[in-house]
Structures are given as structure tokens and as C-alpha cells.
Simulated assay, not measured.
Amino acid sequence: MLVLNAFGVEQEIPSLRRFAVEHAVTTPRASRDRVGSGKGPVLAYVLDERTLDFAARLARGSSLAIVESVHAFPLEGWARQLGAIDLTRPNEQPEPLDSELAEAIERLAFYKNNGFGDQFGKQQARRILQDLRGAGLMERDVILGALAAKGASDRAVRNLGKLMDALDRR
């Protein structure tokens, strides 16, 4: 199946148009009836946080291939967290996360329950992020991507991004 941020994108790209002729095409806004439980491989094209979360859930137990763009949600942290393979460089392995950064991401994942929307979750996230900034490990794209790979909802990823942006303004 093909997962997009919005319908119509597949018509602009010849290879996606051909793929869409033979496979289901969906977006996070489409009815779940369109794809059922989503069992099977997923090709996702230029995602945001919400569409990444949706595509990953549809691909659970199968394969997920993602086309990334510099103008969309950055996938470096996601790939490093999962050990994903870059098909344009199949002989290169993703760089593992620094152990201190990996441990901080684990702690952030622990506090993500309410999408960093409640006061306690925000406080804990701010504390962890301040520690990362102090250690010179505040890699926004890597942290957000890795948290998404750990199953954080799109809301949690967006809210954590807002907390990071607020810390950067200080």
C-alpha cells in the first residue's frame, strides 16, 4: 500500500502513479475502511509526524519503505533508532546513537504517555532536554525521529518539538 500526506501527490510522480494503479493508496485522513488493518508492506512518501505514525502502524509485522525529503519530517533519528537501511546506500549501516543520547530518549519515551501535554510530562521532558543541551547532545531531528521510532504518537513528537524550540529561544 502507498501512504501519503495527501491524495493527489501520487498523480504528480510517474513511478508513484504506476504504483497506485496496482496498490491501495491512503492518507491518515482517509477512512480506515479504505485499507482495513493494513497487513502487508507499506511504501510511504515524504512524511510528516502524523503520516509516519500512521504508516508505521499499518506496516506493523511487515516491511516499511519510506521516501524522505529535506522538506518533510527528518528520519535520521528514526533510522538510527531502528537500524533501518538506506536503500540508496545499502552497504552503510546507520550510525548508532550515542549511549547518553539513547538513554535520554528512553527516558523521554517513558514520559510520553500524555503526549507531553500534561504539566508533569512537560517538566520531565524539559529536564531531560536541558541535560542533553548541557552535554551538547541536543540534536532536534535525531531526538524527534528516535522518539517516533519508539512508538511516540505524532502529538507527542510535535509537542516535544515545541518544547525543544522553546528551550532554544532561551
Score class of each variant (00 low, 15 high):
residue 1 M to G: 04
residue 5 N to L: 10
residue 7 F to Q: 02
residue 9 V to Q: 10
residue 11 Q to R: 14
residue 12 E to F: 10
residue 15 S to V: 14
residue 15 S to N: 11
residue 16 L to N: 08
residue 20 A to M: 07
residue 27 T to Q: 11
residue 28 P to I: 00
residue 28 P to S: 03
residue 31 S to Y: 07
residue 34 R to E: 06
residue 37 S to H: 09
residue 39 K to T: 13
residue 42 V to Q: 02
residue 44 A to H: 04
residue 44 A to I: 00
residue 44 A to N: 05
residue 44 A to T: 03
residue 45 Y to G: 01
residue 45 Y to V: 05
residue 48 D to R: 07
residue 50 R to V: 08
residue 52 L to N: 01
residue 53 D to N: 14
residue 57 R to N: 13
residue 61 G to I: 01
residue 64 L to P: 03
residue 66 I to M: 12
residue 68 E to H: 13
residue 68 E to C: 09
residue 70 V to K: 07
residue 71 H to M: 10
residue 72 A to E: 14
residue 72 A to K: 05
residue 73 F to K: 04
residue 75 L to V: 07
residue 77 G to P: 05
residue 77 G to Q: 04
residue 79 A to N: 02
residue 80 R to D: 00
residue 81 Q to L: 04
residue 83 G to W: 05
residue 88 T to S: 12
residue 90 P to M: 09
residue 92 E to N: 00
residue 98 D to F: 04
residue 99 S to A: 10
residue 101 L to P: 00
residue 102 A to P: 09
residue 104 A to C: 05
residue 105 I to H: 02
residue 109 A to V: 01
residue 112 K to F: 03
residue 122 K to S: 12
residue 123 Q to G: 09
residue 131 D to M: 12
residue 133 R to N: 10
residue 135 A to W: 13
residue 138 M to V: 02
residue 138 M to A: 11
residue 141 D to R: 12
residue 141 D to T: 02
residue 143 I to L: 13
residue 144 L to C: 12
residue 150 K to R: 15
residue 156 A to P: 11
residue 158 R to H: 08
residue 167 L to R: 09
residue 170 R to K: 12
